[in-house]
Design a protein around this nucleic acid. Sequence first.
DNA 1: CACCCGGAAGGATT
DNA 2: GAATCCTTCCGGGT
Length: 732
Amino acid sequence: MSKMKMLPVQLSLNSLNPGIWSDVLWRCPPAPSSQLAELKTQLPPSLPSDPRLWSREDVLVFLRFCVREFDLPKLDFDLFQMNGKALCLLTRADFGHRCPGAGDVLHNVLQMLIIESHMMQWHLPNSPVTPTSRYPLSPHSHPPTPTWPPLNAPPENSPFHSSAHSLAGHHFMAPNSVTLSPPPSVDSQASSPPQAPYQNGGATGAAPGSAGGSAPAAGGATNTSNPTSSSASSTGSNGSQPNIMPMKGISSASSNHSDSEEEYSETSGGVSKMPPAPLSYSTASPPGTPILKDIKPNWTQQLTNSFVNSWSQQQQQQQQQQAAAVAAVAAQAQQHQLQQQQQQQQLPQKLTLDNTAGPVVTPAGGSISAPTTPSYMYKAKREFFPENSEPNTNGRLLWDFLQQLLNDRNQKYSDLIAWKCRDTGVFKIVDPAGLAKLWGIQKNHLSMNYDKMSRALRYYYRVNILRKVQGERHCYQFLRNPTELKNIKNISLLRQSTPANGNGGSPSMPQGSSQAPGSPAGQNWNPQQQSQQQQQSPQRPASRNGPMSLPAVAAVAAAAAAAYGPPPTSPLFMHAINGAFHYLSAAAAGPPPNSPALNTPSAVGGPDKFQFHPLKLENGSGSGSESAGEDLKPTDLSVSSKSTATSNEDCYPLIRNADGLTTIKLIRYNEHQVAASPAGQSPKHDDQQAGASNASSSPRPMDQASEQAQPVPMESDCNGGESEDSFRHMQQ
DNA sequence: CACCCGGAAGGATT
DNA sequence: GAATCCTTCCGGGT
């Protein structure tokens, strides 16, 4: 009994080795828990290990077993007149409908088995996976499906887990793969570049194999053919079940990757140029699916190689491998060498850590991460893929993507982007091309390059999310902390505010919105600079998923894709991973990164980087902030806050809005600005704000130093240096 | 030449 | 259908 429920749900994360887990997760779906192992041992021997291979009889045997083993309510076996493949396609909801009282349990158990099976198979070149949809996972979009459960399962002990390692390959997709989601914007991807169809000849050779998985619902058929991936394939083919969602995420992800990869090659400017040779993967790339199409061989190969290598190593050293994969991506961007290094050293941790760290920001509602709860699985899913409208961006949005990279605990992406001064939010894009590629991967825009990405960054000037650090190439400064941003559902709001910005005060804020004092969002990153902050009005605490390092995921996915076929595409993939990761990490580590707990100052530190030191000033008192925090829970940033209300010059008082969000408002800002800044300090930064406010209107914001003249520290190197100091001042 | 800026048009997604 | 968030182009400035 307890088992029953527990099984699916509970994971004993604690024991897990985070690192390992993460690794595993990256590659494979969560390993089944030890419980699962037990379960497996108890399964009728006659049952093939791969649920997809089950016959109708086997399905019934399985169901009976579950009923007996988990003490489930009676099932109407007539509702399960299907073979294993079909069974695998059933979504949680489907199970729920068929057996209300036991649907979740059955689903979870099955997913675990599937995952395990997949893991076993993963290494297979042509795994079915396919994925197409990219973002499908996005919380919003797709509803529900619970597929993650498996992920949850913490491996810890589970043999599975270990096995997984060994298997390594197996990719996690398995479970997910099954479900495919429709490809999101395949076209875009495809379209983007002129690239060749790499896809395996279009056909995606892989596709077939992989296909299964991903076949996007729509495409459906796309490839599903793949037997192996029966589940996947089935899904595709079956179409019958629309609900596969969860899985799809994954699959899609994979697909995306590939795409991205392609881009990489392309965009990267040749970072690595690859011969057109198609990858071996088999992706299922449905026509529609974005996926791999273009992947460029070289790139992919590289990825693959790295990935593979890592993999193998992994077996040896799990972590290392992952790292390698990630590294590979990054490295490719620039240095292969680095990759190697990283792989050897850093990588291992990186991937893993990422996950854990990943999420720095939490949604306002710390609730999100509640993974710990028993029921967490479900919750987890939601978190990961919040069905809510929450903003979880999981890297979908550029700022979030950058944040994730920057805040990677392991600093895996330091070769691509790094903080110059975390406190002030100043960062430098170390490898513009590489970063752009990664972003392109993330978005499945094959042709992404720094020029384009930078345009997107400039777009943020208007909304006061970013500003350029003048004088320094590739240096930008976040004007808002992630939490804040996350809370803001629509940046547009910021935009609105923007105009206002005009100096006068808080430009940005949407006043209307709420800015007011109440609403603050959260914290700003840099206080000083920032101009304002607007608040975001509406905030929603989003429940974000958070954590995860997209990039890492992407990298991994890409690598995996390259290596195995359908790459997990980004978003979904990431999502999935995140989710899983999140889960795991949460379990292992305890509070989820985003969890409120983290918010606390101490917590903040948690993820190393996270701390923005934002300042939080709070109305109340510094600590108060926390109190406020409850409401606010600004999350990471806030945490650090020490800021007390002090008014330091630059401090921005936080304002709490009804929603509980805190916003920092620049109060002094204007004053000082005028006084101090003018010439001063901020040499250039002004723009930022200016941009914001003006942007829209004025031709060029930048100049306006006057406007904001904030005392921003920014300058390029904040390194702690002044900027921080200043920052600190402010805080204090 | 690379970087940066921002307008404009348009696509994908929500 | 509207809004958002880019993506893609582009001309121009530094």
